[in-house]
Design a protein around this nucleic acid. Structure first.
Lengths: 166, 166
DNA sequence: TATTGTTATACTCTATAACTATA
DNA sequence: TATAGTTATAGAGTATAACAATA
């Protein structure tokens, strides 16, 4: 292992805390709006939004789980809720019998459409209000490499550990 | 009310999503590290860190709740856990008998010290690795006004509603 | 009357492990 | 054997409302 003992200077530390705080506050606002406007949790909204974005309106369970950083079972739970509400449909995939394809329904699209304006309003008012267009562009350019790096980096130090042997 | 019907252009939308994703991934990594290194949730870590940062090692419950964006009861719950673990102590405030002052203990400081290096390691490796020093400075300058704006702006559209009268 | 904090409670969400079925 | 998904279950966390005590 490398002699890793990195430290954060005050600037980095402050930036990290600000980042956490900003997103924490933003998510709080957004979650409240989603709950009030469409009785959706943020995760459920993310799932619907992803499906709605897809050309086919569909995704495999696994792809959804990867995208939303979830355990399989967690996704099964959420997909079950969405299906119970008639917002999505699940069906075995044609090509791979093991897979399940999730598809957004018209009701799902309708709810998405109903919820989106208020959502955008919150994000616009809370996050982007104090930023100029150039600021946003700069921010985007800073976040992109971080996002790519995080996606490429195994989040944990290793795979899930066995609890028995060691 | 203003004729608010703001929209997000593709750049803004992408930036918003990247922001959410980056912090989501970062928190996931960090929460795992905190759990493994010290059996702490992120909120508990935030509370300890805040107390540790204070010159007196203390804060009132209300101040902590405000800082961590919590309901009172949620904070009571977490403070109870921390106290049960011997990481903090609660005592009535001297000046205001209604208030409770929470103080970090030596054990709390010790745990904080034990957990911090790994924490910093994760943040450094996940968040700051792809950013130059100038990048960090730029990011900090972008986040500061957003943070201030969010703090100043009532997160909800209004205060908590009464459910009875109207 | 307003503020501070706690309690009781109910609910949502998430993760782990065991299990089934297909590749 | 490895992958995809579900189920059961258990636990952590959060919010709401009712309450007690002090300002």
């Amino acid at each position: 292992m490398p002699d890793s003992r990195p430290s954060l200077d005050p600037l980095q530390l402050g930036t990290y805390f600000d980042l956490i705080e900003v997103v924490s506050l933003l998510r709080h606002s957004v979650e409240q709006q989603l709950r009030e406007a469409g009785d959706l949790s943020y995760v459920q909204f993310q799932l619907l939004a992803r499906l709605g974005d897809s050309p086919t309106g569909s995704h495999r369970m696994t792809d959804l789980a990867d995208g939303v950083v979830y355990s399989r079972s967690g996704l099964t739970y959420q997909a079950g809720l969405l299906e119970k509400s008639g917002l999505v449909v699940r069906a075995p995939s044609p090509d791979d019998e093991r897979s399940v394809t999730v598809t957004i329904t018209d009701a799902g699209r309708a709810l998405l459409a109903k919820v989106l304006p208020g959502h955008i309003e919150v994000v616009s008012g809370q996050l982007f209000a104090p930023l100029s267009r150039d600021d946003v562009k700069t921010l985007a350019e800073l976040l992109a490499p971080v996002r790519d790096h995080m996606r490429a980096t195994p989040p944990r130090s290793a795979a899930p550990r066995r609890r028995k042997g060691a």
